[in-house]
Simulated assay, not measured.
Amino acid sequence: MQAAARPVTGVDDIAVLALDGVVTFDLGVPLLVFGALPDRYRLTLCAPEPGAVPTIDGFSLGVDRGLDELVRAGTVVVPGYDVDRPVPPAALRALLRAHAAGTRLVAICSGVFALAEAGLLDGLTVTTHWRAADLLTRRHPAVTVDPDVLYVDNGQVLTSAGASAGLDLCLHVVRRDHGAAVANTAARFAVAAPHRAGGQSQYIKHSMPQTSGQSLARTREWALRHLGDDLSVRRLAEHAALSERTFARRFVEEAGVSPAQWLLVARIDLAKHLLESGHSGIDEIARRVGLGTAANFRARFRKATGTSPTAYRQVFRQR
């Protein structure tokens, strides 16, 4: 089960481990997201051996910190790397020591292979890039691989799918540490969606491959400004000047989920912001986000987050 969200106090030290053949895009994601919040996170780039680290893209990085950083950090991020290159035994031992010390381990894309090789994923469900899922299963049969999710949060160990899913995971980490408002700040800096459709539960699924279609973008923007209203498919379709059937089909093609699922995510995200930043009562928030009664709001919120609105407010209220 996913660990209960808790705020991180002070500045969290994050060590980003660059293994041989590191994927530069994956490496840049945590630097971008956590680097946007210097008052919350302190970043250190390290390698199994300080010096030149070859990337999968044909050039080398100069890294001056070694494996000692893994044990000192509160969070270790392992970006994707060329999984045909062996992970140095010293790096595997350092990951084991960090895990034993309670350090949070975050693997982006193929970075999950290093955690699996260290024996840290046996019995867990994880994810990785869909093209590497079968290989991960063959190499590590004790690990359950779900290729149909953006990321998986197992509490101390978190893994993401490929490419932009690493961005989703890093924003999820910020959201888990400091709440939706701070995560939205990092998302704006990265010019990324604060939360892609699919919900913020342990598994973040997407029903269909996302497309680049933007024909319904104006309707989605309008819906976000009217979340407290009754936003039926009929009303959304009328705004888009489409039939209900055509609208529903095109919405799934563009957003990856149904209108109802997309709206629920948006409403829960707005509810989090209201819980964090204001003093409105539960009944008022339920009305403003379009979830009707307080009882319905509490049930939907708990299902999406694993906690109650009141408990969430106590944990994440802005200081």
Score class of each variant (00 low, 15 high):
Val11Leu: 08
Asp20Thr: 11
Thr24Gly: 02
Leu27Asn: 07
Val33His: 07
Val33Tyr: 06
Phe34Glu: 02
Pro38Phe: 03
Tyr41Asp: 08
Leu45Met: 11
Glu49Leu: 12
Ala52Met: 14
Val53His: 05
Pro54Cys: 06
Asp57His: 14
Gly62Cys: 10
Arg72His: 13
Ala73Cys: 03
Val78Gln: 06
Asp82Trp: 03
Asp82Thr: 09
Val83His: 08
Pro89Phe: 08
Ala91Cys: 07
Arg97Pro: 00
Ala101His: 12
Leu105Asp: 08
Val106Trp: 03
Ile108Asp: 07
Ala114Phe: 07
Leu115Gln: 06
Ala116Thr: 08
Gly119Glu: 09
Leu121Val: 09
Leu121Ala: 11
Asp134Phe: 03
Leu135Asn: 11
Leu136Asn: 07
His140Lys: 04
His140Ser: 10
Val145Tyr: 07
Val149Trp: 07
Ser160Phe: 08
Gly162Ser: 05
Ala165Pro: 07
Asp168Lys: 04
Cys170Pro: 05
Val174Gln: 03
His178Ile: 02
His178Leu: 13
Gly179Ser: 06
Thr185Trp: 08
Val191Pro: 00
Arg196Val: 12
Gly198Trp: 02
Gly199Phe: 04
Ser201Tyr: 11
Ile204Trp: 13
His206Thr: 15
Met208Asp: 11
Gln210Leu: 15
Gly213Phe: 08
Gln214Tyr: 09
Ser215Trp: 09
Leu216Gly: 03
Ala217Met: 10
Ala217Phe: 11
Arg218Trp: 09
Trp222Gly: 00
His226Asn: 15
Gly228Asp: 08
Arg234Gln: 14
Arg235Cys: 02
Leu236Asn: 02
Leu236Gln: 02
Leu236Ala: 01
Ala237Gly: 01
Glu238Thr: 12
Ala240Tyr: 11
Leu242Glu: 14
Glu244Ser: 13
Thr246Tyr: 11
Thr246Phe: 10
Phe247Pro: 02
Ala248Glu: 15
Arg249Ser: 13
Glu253His: 12
Ala255Trp: 10
Gly256Glu: 05
Pro259Val: 03
Ala260Trp: 09
Leu263Gln: 13
Leu263Cys: 04
Ala266Pro: 01
Ile268His: 01
His273Phe: 11
His273Tyr: 13
Leu275Trp: 04
Ile282Tyr: 12
Glu284Ser: 12
Glu284Leu: 10
Glu284Gly: 07
Ala294Phe: 02
Phe297Tyr: 11
Lys303His: 12
Ser308Phe: 00
Pro309Thr: 00
Arg313Lys: 13
Arg313Val: 00
Val315Gln: 14
Arg317Pro: 01
Gln318Val: 13
Gln318Cys: 09
Gln318Tyr: 09
